[in-house]
């Protein structure tokens, strides 16, 4: 079983004097990878919202068109009746 190589947490952060280089490297890595993981989740939410809006618009238009058609049909029928 590998043992912890540092005497204390402060010692761990100091990295034998190389703390600055090691932690900047790991920090940059964490930030870039975190961004790469977060991005597709945000894109998915955006894509779904976009496609939902598209669907609602199409359904809305189709709905208005069928309403108009019904109205026209009703008017035509009224006109024929007169």
């Amino acid at each position: 079983m590998p043992e912890f190589r540092f005497d204390s947490i402060a010692d761990f952060f100091a990295m034998g004097g190389y703390g600055f280089y090691v932690w900047v490297s790991y920090g940059f890595f964490a930030v870039v990878m975190g961004y790469n993981l977060w991005l597709p989740y945000r894109q998915r939410a955006n894509t779904l919202r976009l496609l939902q809006a598209r669907q609602l618009r199409q359904h809305g238009q189709a709905g208005i068109e069928s309403d108009l058609r019904q109205q026209q049909n009703a008017q035509q029928q009224q006109g024929e009746a007169h």
């Binding site: 043992e3 190589r5 540092f6 761990f12 034998g16 004097g17 190389y18 280089y21 790991y26």
Partner: peptide, 25 residues
């Protein structure tokens, strides 16, 4: 991998703890 590399792997005899960057580089 990263916890092991940062805290439990032995230091390099030449580069000390600086070599721990290897686990991501």
């Amino acid at each position: 991998g990263l916890v092991w590399g940062l805290g439990f792997a032995p230091p390099d005899y030449q580069m000390g703890d600086n070599y721990r960057i290897i686990y991501i580089h």
